[in-house]
Computed example of a mutant assay.
Amino acid sequence: MRKITLGALVASAAFAVASPAAAQTCVGECGSAAPNGDVTAPPEYGPNYSYVSTRNGQTGAGQIDGVGGTDGSEYTTAAFSASAGDELNFYFNYITSDGAGFADYAFAQLLSAAGDPVAYLFTARTRPTGDTSPGFGLPANSATLTPITSEIVSGAPDWAQLGGNSGDCFAAGCGYTGWINSSYTIGADGSYTLKFGVSNFTDTAYDSGLAFAGLTIAGQEIPTPGSGAVPEPATWMMLLLGFGAIGGLMRRRPKQGKTTVSFA
């Protein structure tokens, strides 16, 4: 039996709303979620937030070049314009059910619209004690984090976006950071994108995830899954076409077995 979540289908439709050069993209599992378990509503924004999770991750996705990993997920925003001196802000929360010896990690990276690396706004990595960010063996943070410390709130994290690993904990190091603000000053006029990634490391067991919210540039919202940004008229048309495709999938019945649609 194959299970298709309505949330995943809607997300797929939403990510196909713009031209290839400007569209939001997702590899693996990305989406929006309401506060649940240990992941509360983000400060100032919400109640919903966006997320990426290694649950349903893809091999090679969500990785930092030269660091590696096994499977993961990554989400990249549509391109946005910024001027030198503009403030880029967002909140993040790193959540992991993996612990000692299996150093899963997450990150946010600023890229040029052409995909060239500009800065790592934060990196975070599983560790039993001490700050998770910047993650050991990972690039340094180019942004200012508030609070400046990021020790894990230890214990088995309760978060639906970890799937079957919600409530699981493999050894010391599992838990969540709580919401942390990242603030970065743009250095030059240009067009940029933001990439958020999370990766399992060494193995594919005990999933990890990254929640993020409140992406703004010079006080203006950068659209993400679950954000309050209003799509352009052409975007609405593409969304309607996507919803029509979803309806077709929901009506279709295979000759053998059955497809279940759930409301995630």
Rank of each mutant, 00 (worst) to 15 (best):
M1N: 08
T5I: 00
L9A: 09
S12C: 05
A14W: 08
V17W: 10
A21R: 14
V27K: 05
G31F: 08
A34Q: 08
A34D: 09
V39M: 08
A41N: 10
E44P: 03
Y45D: 09
G46D: 06
N48H: 05
S53Y: 02
N56D: 01
Q58M: 05
A61F: 02
Q63W: 11
Q63V: 12
D65A: 10
G69V: 01
T70Y: 04
G72Q: 14
S73C: 10
A79N: 13
F80P: 06
E87Y: 04
I95N: 11
F107Q: 03
L111I: 03
G115H: 09
D116V: 08
L121M: 03
R125D: 08
R125W: 09
T126H: 07
D131G: 06
T132P: 10
P134V: 01
F136N: 07
F136P: 11
P139Q: 00
A140V: 15
L145R: 06
T146H: 09
S154T: 14
P157H: 03
A160I: 13
A160P: 13
A160M: 12
Q161K: 15
Q161D: 13
S166T: 15
Y176T: 07
Y176A: 05
W179I: 07
N181E: 15
T185K: 13
I186E: 01
A188G: 07
T193Y: 11
K195Y: 01
F196G: 03
A205P: 03
G214P: 10
I217R: 11
G219H: 02
Q220H: 12
P223K: 12
P225H: 11
P225M: 06
A229G: 14
A229C: 10
A234F: 13
W236G: 04
L239D: 04
G242K: 00
A245P: 00
R251Y: 00
P254Y: 00
K255H: 14
T260N: 04
S262R: 08
F263T: 13
A264N: 15
